[in-house]
Each structure stands twice: as C-alpha cells, then as structure tokens.
Design a protein around this nucleic acid. Structure first.
Length: 480
RNA sequence: GGGAUCGUCGUCUAGCUUGGUAUGAUACUAGUCUGGGGGACUAGUGGUCGCAGGUUCAAAUCCUGCCGGUCCCA
C-alpha cells in the first residue's frame, strides 16, 4: 500500500460523499458495526461527543434542567397513544416480539423517541402547580430503522442524542422555553463546533409529528445540501391530553400542562467533519479536539533523542498547566513525515515540531492544521499557544460563515430556481404559505422548506411558485 | 422508492470469463541502518476467499438465497 491509500484518496471537491466516508473511517472517529446502518464510535469520535455533552450539560443546568434516564423499550400501547405521532414513526420502528422463546404480549418498541414514555411518567409525577416547571433531559440513543443508504453520523439506524422534555403551567412559559433551548443550541454549535447556523421555524408540513410547531437549526454544507442540526418543539397540549399530564392550579382547577421537547444528535459531529475537513482529512475546532496539540520530537543520535524528548516533556507540562490537551508522539519506528500526515488526517489543530536545530535556537516550529501555516515560536512565547488556539477557533467560524454565505442565494424566479438548485445551496425565496405550493416546489426541484428564519416578517414579495402576494421568506434547499 | 456496483490475510488487491488447495503490496514482529513531509535492507507471522445451500471427482471461480458496504437518481 503506497502513500496514496494511507491518506484520503479523493478530493473533497470532486467526490464529496466518498471523501466524507473516508475521513470518518481513516481519522478513526467511527467504524461500521456488523449490522446494517449501525456504527461504532471509537475513542476520538466519542471524545468529541463527550465534549459537546459537557457543554450542553453546563448550559442546561444553568437553565434549571437536570438529567434523567429512560429505558429503551416502549410498549406498543403507549407508543400508539398519540395517533399522528405514531403514524409518523411507525414505519421505522424496531420491534421486540420475543423474550427468549416466548412471544411477548404487547410488542415492545426500541425507542424511536421517548415522548410517550416520559409523559406517562410525568402524569404520575405532576399533581400541582408546585410541581412545575418540570425540566428533564435524557442522554441516550434512539433507534429508527433506515431503509435508505446510511452514512456515518448523518443517517444511521441508531444514533446518540439528547432529548429534553419540559412541562409548564402556561403556554407562554413553554414557548419561551422552546426558544431558550434553540438559543443554547445555536450558541453551542457556533462557539464549540465553529459552524454557523440559521434558526427559525419549520413549515406545517415539515414539523415534528405531534407538535404544534417545530423550531430548527439548519446549516448549509459545502456540497450545497442542508443539514438539520437540532430541533426544539412546542408540543402545546397535544401530548398532555392523551397522556393525562395535568395539574391543580392556584385556582384549584385542573389544567392540562404545556409541554416542549427538543434534541440534538451526533449529526453535529457529521456537520463538523463536512464543514471543516479538507483533502488531507479531518480538521478539528480546538474546543472539541480530543488532542489539541501534538508534539513531534525529531532526533537521530541517542543524545539528541534524550535532550529533545526532555524538552518536549517540559513544553507539554507547561501547556497542560494551562488546561490544554497535549500529546507527544514518541513512536520511534516511524519517520517524522509519516507522523505529520497521520496527525493531519486526524485533524489535530496544532503541531509542534522540535529537534536539535530548534533547541539550539531556543524555539519550536508550530504548524496550524486549518490553514497549513508554519511559524517559528521561541521557547519564552510558548504560553501564547492558548491564545493561538482561540484565534484558530474564531477563524474557523469566520471561514465557515463565508463559505455558507457563498452558498446562499436570493431567488425571485422559479425557472431560475430550478436551474440553480442542481448545484445546491440555500435559497431565500418568497412563499405564499400554502402547502400546495410547497409540495409542488418539492416535486419540481427536490427542495423543501428547511427553515423560516426568525424575525423574517413583512418582506413583501410574490410567492416564487404561484405569484400570490407573500410576506414569508423561507430558506429552500435539498436536505440530507 | 428506482438504478449501478462491490465483498479474497488488519488494510488495499491479483486470480473468476475457460473450476484443480490464492498473487502482490502494505501493515504487524525481530534486527541493522535511518530520521526536519508518508524511509531502506533482511527474515518471519497472518487468509477454511461475506454467510448458507446447490452443481461437481474437485468451487474463490458456476447456480440460488441471504447478509453487508459504496455511489447515483426520485
């Protein structure tokens, strides 16, 4: 196997789909499981997830949300209680029909989502207005059988996610919660993963089955397709009624509660790979990188080796004191060049090269992954590395934002829309609000309404399809 | 939902048309030399050819079914 097949063998531009799969496998984030549509997370992949979980937990906690845990099996009778909800999920539910040799009475679903189970419990737990609000988040996996072609992190039959479920005494408070969560999602994804997103509402057609409305966070990927990166739903009383989630209010009258549910999944990792990766492999934003800095010591004689490794250790300790995640690649059997390529494929944000020549000049060579820049840094400036990592983080967001802007277009003419949609992108287009037009646009272009951005009001125009007057400007795109 | 294509040591692969106990590389192990962008030489380990049937004296190769991967189009 030559150097061609150790690294990524296709370019991101010419064969995006193949490129993506290779990066996931070769950067050792994940591998395929023996069952169709399931993947295994390897330590570097799981570490990114843990980092996101840590940040979300902190922010959820500040908002009065605590974590709980729900079982994976849901009886059919429960899952079917809210009819539209059930109809929406039924085609992709995995069913457990046997325990050992015996058939189970009520079939058991492997949870596709936990609303029905959580709310059965909530109805027991909530009696009084004093029990509200109830805000619990669950970190778990959900199972939805994917018949179509699967893709690691983006479309798998089981995925890691968090699902939050809150209950409130008033509609106003519940709706406020929906948007608070959406804001947490947006700022976390932008600050941690350096991916710019657009938040807003889904159309009636695209909303979560069972919700009153769905808010969403969407981003345009480098191949021009849209990726839904998280949703926060206002459930109204649609579930509290069938599940009997009610409480005695201060007026001593029983009321049905108002509810929300919301989630993000490991799709966020998929988005990060697509947005930042390049032809050499993965590029990790420093904040979520399992290893932020790799030190490659270079030496030949035994004496040089000792001296170089010693200095590398010193630098490592110095950086670790500042809470940076550092690794020294002291593998002796492979050459420095191999290591450079290896760590670049794995996306480590910064590389420090140090050898006898550097020690003589009291400096190291610092290589930045995201723009391939190499600079000299003297020993007494080592502590500046923290600052450099922060700069990289913000530059990456900036670059991603420019990329997204280049993939976003205002469009006023339907035939022009049909022509341009082939190349992908986000299209801002006026829409009359009728589902009929939405359906026909989808039929003729393959694009659907990804998001109706917040604060988009009174932009007077004509519906791109039927030419009726319109004040709504959703983003149309083909999605993942 | 429709179409195409693939599955052989850890990885990539030759062999399949025309059946006869599997080729090479890389990785791995050991040693020597090397070391600032995917090193060199020598020796060694590793595969019941995705799974299950069938045809045959004989199946990686032919037939049937299944499982899994990848890509393209709705």
């Amino acid at each position: 196997m030559g150097k061609e097949s150790i690294g990524i063998t296709v370019s991101k531009k010419s064969d995006f789909s193949e490129w993506y799969t290779q990066v996931v496998l070769k950067a050792k984030l994940a591998d395929y499981a023996p069952v169709k549509g399931l993947i295994v997370l390897r330590p570097d992949g799981y570490s990114i997830w843990e980092s996101l979980k840590y940040t979300f937990d902190k922010k959820f906690g500040q908002n009065g949300i605590r974590n709980g845990f729900l079982p994976v099996l849901i009886p059919e009778s429960l899952l079917g209680k809210e009819k539209k909800h059930f109809a929406g999920f039924n085609p992709e539910v995995f069913w457990v029909t046997h325990s050992g040799e015996n058939e189970v009475g009520d079939r058991l679903a492997l949870r596709p989502t936990s609303e029905t189970l959580a709310y059965t419990l909530y109805s027991k737990w909530i009696k009084s207005w004093r029990d509200l609000p109830l805000k619990i988040n669950f970190w778990n996996t959900a199972l939805r059988a994917e018949i179509k072609a699967t893709k690691p992190f983006l479309r798998t039959s089981e995925f890691l996610w968090q699902e939050g479920h809150t209950v409130h005494a008033t509609q106003e408070e519940a709706e406020k919660e929906v948007f608070k969560i959406l804001a947490i999602y947006k700022n976390t994804v932008e600050e941690e993963l350096a991916i710019p997103v657009i938040i807003g509402k889904k159309s009636e057609k695209e909303k979560f089955v069972g919700a009153v409305y769905t808010t969403t966070m969407e981003s345009v990927m480098p191949d021009g397709k849209a990726l839904q990166m998280g949703t926060s739903h206002f459930l109204g009383q649609n579930f509290s009624k069938p599940f009997d989630v009610k409480f005695a209010d201060k007026d001593n009258i029983e009321h049905f509660a108002w509810q929300t549910s919301w989630g993000v999944s490991w799709r966020l990792i998929g988005a990060m790979i697509m947005v930042h990766g390049d032809d050499k492999g993965l590029v990790l934003p420093p904040k979520v990188a399992p290893t932020q800095i790799v030190i490659v010591p270079i030496y030949n004689s035994e004496e040089d080796k000792k001296q170089t490794l010693q200095k590398a250790e010193d630098i490592k300790k110095q950086l670790e004191l500042k809470m940076m995640r550092v690794h020294i690649d002291d593998r002796s059997e492979i050459s420095p060049g191999y290591k450079f390529n290896d760590w670049e494929m794995k996306g480590v944000p910064l590389r420090i090269e140090i050898g006898p020549k550097d020690i003589q000049k009291q400096k190291v060579v610092l290589a930045k992954r995201y723009n391939k820049e190499k600079i000299d840094l003297s020993f007494d400036k080592i502590e500046k590395i923290g600052q450099i990592l922060n700069e990289i983080q913000s530059k990456m967001l900036e670059t991603a934002r420019k990329q997204a802007d280049l993939n976003t277009f205002d469009i006023f003419d339907f035939s022009e829309f049909k022509e341009k949609i082939g190349k992908g992108g986000f299209f801002n287009a006026n829409w009359c609000g009728k589902q009929d037009c939405e359906d026909k646009i989808k039929d003729e272009t393959g694009a659907d309404i990804r998001v109706i951005p917040l604060g988009n009001k009174n932009k007077v125009g004509k519906c791109i399809y039927c030419n009726e007057p319109s004040t709504i400007v959703p983003i149309f795109a083909r999605g993942y």
